Simulated scan of single mutants.
Amino acid sequence: MEYMRGLFHRAPADFLLASEEVLTRGVGLGLSPPTVRVNIFDPPAVLVGYNQDVYEEVNVEEAMKLGFSVNRRPSGGGAILMYEDSPGWEIWLPQSLVEGLDIGQIYVELAKIPLIALRYLGIENARLRGKNDIEVGGRKISGTGLYMDSGGIMFCGTVLLDFNTRLMLQLLRLPIEKMSDKDVETFEKRIVTAREILGSKPSVRDVLEAFRRAVGDVLKVEVADGDLNEWELGELQRTVEKYRSSNWIYGYKATDGRTFTKICKYKTAAGLLRIHVKVFENILEQILLTGDFFAYPSTAIHELEANLKWIAVDDVPQKVIEFADRMTIHGLSIYELANLIENCIKD
């Protein structure tokens, strides 16, 4: 592979999401060239993952009132806001390029691209954390995801150029929505933006150029401007209707009663510990640990949270215990922490 097509699209959610599906399929079938794209959702959008229930994840009425569209991604993962300050990026490749690698290894290999792109933006020391987050100094700056279809693979994510925590809390139904101001401030410390690191916000053009250069470096290819081809345009015309349909956007419902949001408070020898959890179909979707305890190193709690996301509830205690050699909470053993988290999830 010597060439990759470069695209930039500023478009509504239905077009951008339909094109994610079409290009993944097209690259796998050999009908689309390998491609890198940067996009802006216009109008802004709230997106849920493929397996989520919109009404459990999104304050739909508030989103509509503020001019956000609501839609569902073809890929999994959690609910996100997509707007000018959080441009999206996608890289489409044939699966043959990652043949023999498991999902974790694919993330590690392909994450080299956004890590280098961030360096081109002037952001040093970014690294992959947990399953799919990219962090700088223990704080998240990007999330990533994978989607596969018909022999094609899409590696995608966002870049937080700037971030409005209050807006996110207004639009998403997260376990932190009932947090105190102090807890919200704690949450904000888990996020970092390009503006905070650099002192100014890079332009979308800067992001586009950084990703094209990074793709060229990692994949040893030349990236050249291109357009959607005739096959892609025809497929898009048909596929976009799915992403405009209420059945696609709102059709998934959780009915087994295992989805809940919960905040558990424990007074321990280490201090007050708050455990915020969201469980979906026996999977720990989100967890935040807050309180006045001391953890060493200070970023270890963030690392633990990232590693606990999207695993089976029954596997959580053992996953916590695996951190025994990687973190210390003064006054609370790792086994006690594992037990408290298990109690919070299962009680």
Rank of each mutant, 00 (worst) to 15 (best):
P87K: 08
R73T: 09
N71A: 13
V36A: 10
F41V: 01
G88H: 02
P114M: 09
S75A: 13
V98M: 01
D14G: 08
S96G: 09
E56A: 15
Y50W: 11
W92H: 07
F68E: 10
P87D: 09
G104M: 06
D42Q: 06
E62I: 14
G104C: 05
I91S: 05
Q52L: 15
V98A: 02
L93M: 08
I103C: 09
R25A: 02
N71Q: 11
V22N: 01
V98E: 03
I80E: 10
W92R: 02
D14V: 07
R37H: 03
G77D: 11
P33I: 06
L115A: 03
R37F: 01
F15D: 05
L81R: 09
N59E: 13
E62H: 09
L47G: 12
K65G: 12
D42I: 01
Q52M: 15
D102V: 01
F41D: 01
G100S: 01
L101W: 00
L110P: 01
L29I: 02
Y107R: 04
K112G: 00
Y55P: 11
K112D: 00
L29M: 06
G122N: 01
H9G: 08
P43L: 11
V98Q: 00
L118M: 07
K112M: 00
Y83K: 12
E99K: 06
D102K: 03
R10H: 09
L17F: 02
N39A: 13
L115R: 02
L81V: 13
E61N: 14
S69P: 12
A45D: 11
V22A: 01
S32R: 02
I123G: 06
I40D: 09
F15Y: 07
I40A: 08
D53I: 15
